[in-house]
């Protein structure tokens, strides 16, 4: 395992927190500093999506399109046709929620390097309720040919991911969360598109997390280890293309796995892992996420507990899973 330079405060109450969207805002501003081709478009949510950092630094390359998400991505597509690298941001419920077909036709079939930033994804949006808690974006974006799908685990990683997609010359989707969350990586922690990272080694079961859920997996692993259960935690920030080698090699070692995502389990991250595993190396798998239901209003922590997404719930699900499901060792 190469050096990951993770935060030394993982599991401590005083671990610094910051919203993932802030990392996006910083990364976008930096991408704009680095490359004059980078432009940014927003649909009346400039501060919410943290695009104001870019807007203030590069006002001549910032475009306000108003509350019009179909126009947001198609104007971005036209700008990409002129050699620009457009970042288009809104809440994920509206982009890609409302403008999926425009993304399919004018970004993906056209193969233009438009970067869709979907903020306020997941139930951690909190009080706004089900309409604004986007849970189907991973499924929507993962199904599109040419599209790269990334759900960073914290704000520092979001900054790196934003800089990376500014350079990848491909249609890309980056999933962002609203609420402040633990910063468990550091500026030195590696990030590459298409790479998953084993954050913690173990041999009884693999927890595969994406987005905010990776930190909950790390906390769950700590709880379980005190009980003598050895848990491997794999962080999968890039959902497409999936790092098949890392996922399969961990599951080959532990013989069973659990995926954890703040999204519908149908078509999402867990589905991507299940598709891979069932075709290439059938291994017992459980998917934690939203179980074919919508979110509701509440505090993020309450909602995580209610939907089984916090560390305690993940630990409980893991205990139950390993009691009922023997490790499967490949011949």
């Amino acid at each position: 395992m190469s050096e990951l330079y993770l935060s030394d405060k993982i599991g401590q109450d005083d671990i610094p927190t910051e919203p993932i969207r802030k990392g996006f805002g910083k990364g976008l501003k930096q991408a704009g500093d680095d490359d004059i081709r980078v432009v940014a478009l927003c649909a009346d949510l400039t501060e919410s999506t943290q695009m104001h950092l870019f807007r203030d630094a590069h006002p001549e390359r910032f475009v306000e399109v108003g509350v019009a998400e179909q126009n947001l991505v198609t104007v971005a597509s036209g700008m990409a046709a002129m050699g620009k690298i457009p970042f288009a941001s809104s809440y994920a419920a509206f982009s890609p929620g409302r403008n999926w077909e425009q993304i399919r036709t004018t970004v993906c079939i056209n193969d233009r390097p438009v970067k869709i930033a979907g903020s306020h994804a997941g139930v951690s949006v909190g009080p706004d309720g089900a309409t604004h808690q986007m849970l189907e974006d991973i499924a929507l974006m993962r199904a599109l040919p040419n599209m790269i799908v990334i759900a960073p685990g914290d704000s520092v990683e979001a900054e790196k991911a934003t800089l990376a997609i500014a350079k990848n010359d491909k249609p890309s989707y980056i999933r962002l969360a609203r609420e402040a969350s633990a910063v468990f990586t550091t500026p030195l922690t590696p990030f590459e598109i298409g790479t998953a990272y084993v954050l913690h080694e173990g041999h009884d079961v693999t927890l595969l997390g994406t987005g905010l859920m990776t930190y909950e997996c790390l906390l769950a692993a700590r709880q379980l280890e005190k009980e003598g259960i050895s848990v491997e935690v794999v962080h999968v920030p890039t959902i497409k293309p999936l790092d098949e080698r890392t996922v399969l090699s961990s599951l080959r070692k532990t013989g069973r796995g659990i995926t954890v995502e703040e999204a519908q389990i149908a078509g999402g991250f867990g589905s991507a892992v299940a598709e891979l595993v069932s075709e290439q190396m059938p291994t017992p798998l459980k998917r934690i996420g939203l179980q074919d239901r919508f979110g509701e209003s509440g505090k993020p922590a309450e909602l995580f507990a209610h939907f089984g997404l916090d560390a305690d719930s993940i630990a409980a699900s893991t205990r139950e899973f390993i009691q009922s499901t023997p490790q499967y060792h490949q011949k």
């Binding site: 126009n71 198609t74 104007v75 597509s77 036209g78 046709a81 004018t106």
Partner: peptide
Amino acid sequence: GEGLSQGAGMAYVM
């Protein structure tokens, strides 16, 4: 319905 907004994006750059 998608051509005009792409054209507008191109024209904005120009």
